[in-house]
């Protein structure tokens, strides 16, 4: 009987650990809003909160994630994940894709394939990993690999909520694929109380997006 109770307790502890950032009894939130200089909401901005003083990656259970390929585009365009996560790249088109990245945080190549590759790619270093398709040059997406479990991505309204943050001080920063300047320049320290939410707003200056154009240009035959 004792062994059964201990076993159940161990199993519950494992499930809780796998659920990502620990849900703490007293936890605060950061409600982030990201706008551009004209006060239009910025979608796909990644907001991360790193506990002040944290120098190494937090012991967070990494997850299994996916970046799909749909209608010759990566979906989603921006994918924040925690260090150590495994990412699969299911090809949902009826043609083959050839996924690659040159980014220092993760260099890899999934040569021409259909369906879902058998082995996911493990992202074991923090940083931004830009991925592309070698057949369709316009296909680009960004995987933001972070060292903290407290992160999120803004929706079309430019808003994201970071929840279940233990009380304390956090260095919060914002990244976007078109961010002008450095991610560090967006850093600010925010104190999270035992309950309630802290509102924080960023105004990001964005560059133009200059990926290869998908729409046709006279005289060019694209990838054909």
């Amino acid at each position: 009987m004792t062994r059964l109770v201990v076993g159940l307790a161990a199993a519950m502890a494992t499930v809780c650990a796998m659920a990502g950032p620990a849900r703490v009894a007293q936890a605060g939130e950061i409600h982030a809003l990201v706008n551009d200089p004209a006060n239009h909401p910025v979608e796909d901005a990644v907001v991360v909160a790193v506990p002040e003083g944290q120098t190494a990656a937090a012991p967070v259970r990494a997850g299994r994630e996916a970046v799909d390929q749909v209608d010759k585009e990566f979906v989603p365009y921006v994918k924040p994940i925690v260090v150590g996560s495994q990412v699969n790249f299911p090809n949902k088109d009826n043609i083959r894709h050839h996924v690659y990245s040159f980014s220092p945080a993760k260099t890899f190549e999934l040569p021409l394939y259909a369906g879902t590759p058998a082995t996911p790619v493990v992202f074991d270093r923090k940083g931004v990993v830009t991925i592309g398709c070698n057949i369709h040059d316009w296909m680009i997406a960004h995987i933001y690999v972070t060292e903290t479990p407290y992160f999120g991505k803004t929706g079309t309204d430019g808003k994201v909520r970071l929840e279940n943050l233990p009380p304390g001080r956090y260095v919060v920063r914002v990244w976007h694929p078109r961010l002008q300047g450095t991610e560090e320049s967006t850093s600010r320290t925010i104190t999270v109380e035992r309950s309630g939410a802290v509102d924080a707003t960023w105004q990001l200056a964005l560059k133009q997006e200059l990926r290869p154009r998908r729409s046709p240009v006279p005289g060019q035959r694209g990838y054909r």
């Binding site: 154009r213 998908r214 729409s215 046709p216 240009v217 006279p218």
Partner: peptide, 16 residues
């Protein structure tokens, strides 16, 4: 010389 303006993902308006 020419100018090409994308209209969505699959089409463009062009002047040459």
């Amino acid at each position: 010389v020419g100018l090409s303006v994308a209209i969505g993902e699959h089409s463009s308006a062009n002047v040459e």
